[in-house]
Amino acid sequence: MDSVIKLIPLNNYIYLSFAIFAIGVLGVLTRRNAIVVFMSIELMLNSVNLLLSAFSAYSGDGAGQVFVFFIMAVAAAEVAVGLAIIVLLFRNTNSVDINVLKRLKW
């Protein structure tokens, strides 16, 4: 029995995850709100997840899907830590603008 995944051609997955990834990158680059940046990072992670599952199904190798679970677990931990940082940031500066945090420079 073929996976449902295979109903859609592989190229489409690639296009979609590329698009999502690009949206994530642009989001990180352009937005100043730390929460939005954070969400963009999640987007990028998930685009990779999508691609991993697609390739995993098409190549009949389960390892890719195992990776996806790993990434999801790590992402969850990361969200916990990241949100904690953002909360601290907000407490200290009354803002979630990441451009406030640019004292680490020459």
Binding site: V25, T30, L104
Partner: peptide, 17 residues
Amino acid sequence: VRRIQTGNTSFYILLMV
């Protein structure tokens, strides 16, 4: 050269990209 170190995170990411 040191002026590249703006401290602006998105700039670093842009450079990374």
